[in-house]
Simulated scan of single mutants.
Amino acid sequence: MRWSDMDAYGHINNVEVLRMLEEARILAFGPPGGTGAPGAEPPIALFNAVPANAQSLVSEHRVKYLAPLEYRNIPADVDIWISSIKGASLGISYLVSDPVTGVPCVKAETTLAFVDGVSGRLLRVSEEQRELVRPWAGDSVFA
């Protein structure tokens, strides 16, 4: 959490919560398309298993605010897992909790699709990608 993420009430602003979800997704799966300079290998190198011209696009976010996430000078706890594997998309679930009290503050889900960067056509989730994420699969946070 950053000081600038806070709103006038001392809570993390809802727009910044989506940024936190994005950061959790990148930390877990790596940067899409090999963008950026080399760094640490992510726990699930999902984006290493896509064609070079593929783009990963967010097609949907669903967010439910359960309790205020108050600003603290330490990172929030974000649990992240794969909640669905479909033909051309992955569902990613998140549970964001207060790092001191452990109280769940946000539950969310992102649908991520892979698209051919040249043609704009959807790409099927490959068997390699399915095998890569299967160990981290679980139920939807909204189940």
Rank of each mutant, 00 (worst) to 15 (best):
M1W: 01
R2A: 03
W3L: 13
S4A: 12
D5T: 11
D5C: 09
A8E: 05
G10T: 14
G10Q: 12
I12C: 04
N13A: 12
N13T: 10
E16R: 15
R19A: 00
R19S: 01
M20V: 09
M20G: 03
M20W: 03
L21P: 02
L21I: 08
E23Y: 09
E23M: 11
R25Y: 01
F29V: 06
F29S: 03
G30R: 03
G30F: 10
P31W: 15
G33P: 04
G33F: 08
G34E: 01
T35Q: 12
T35D: 05
T35E: 12
G36D: 08
A37H: 09
A37N: 06
A37R: 14
A40I: 09
A40F: 04
P42N: 09
P42T: 08
P43G: 10
P43K: 13
L46R: 04
F47Y: 15
A49G: 05
V50N: 04
P51K: 13
N53Q: 13
A54K: 09
S56N: 06
V58I: 14
S59E: 01
S59F: 09
H61S: 02
H61M: 06
Y65Q: 08
L66V: 12
A67I: 13
L69G: 05
I74T: 13
V78G: 00
I80S: 06
I80K: 04
I80E: 01
I80M: 09
W81D: 03
W81M: 07
I82K: 02
S83D: 02
S84Y: 08
I85T: 11
I85F: 08
I85P: 02
K86A: 05
K86F: 00
K86Q: 04
G87Q: 05
S89N: 05
G91N: 05
I92Y: 04
S93Y: 04
S93N: 09
L95R: 14
V96M: 11
V96D: 01
S97E: 00
D98C: 10
D98Y: 04
D98A: 09
D98F: 05
P99V: 06
P99K: 08
T101Q: 10
T101L: 13
G102Y: 02
V103E: 12
P104S: 11
P104M: 08
P104Q: 07
A108L: 07
A108Y: 01
T110K: 02
T110W: 04
T110F: 03
T111I: 10
T111L: 10
A113R: 08
F114R: 02
V115G: 02
V115E: 00
D116I: 14
D116A: 08
D116M: 12
G117H: 05
G117L: 00
G117Y: 02
V118R: 07
G120T: 03
G120M: 07
R121W: 02
R121V: 00
R121Q: 07
S126K: 12
E127A: 14
E128W: 11
R130M: 06
E131T: 15
L132F: 12
L132R: 08
L132Y: 10
V133D: 01
V133Y: 08
R134A: 15
R134M: 13
P135M: 11
W136I: 10
A137H: 13
G138M: 09
G138L: 11
G138Q: 10
G138R: 15
D139K: 15
S140P: 05
F142G: 03
F142Q: 06
A143Y: 03
A143W: 04
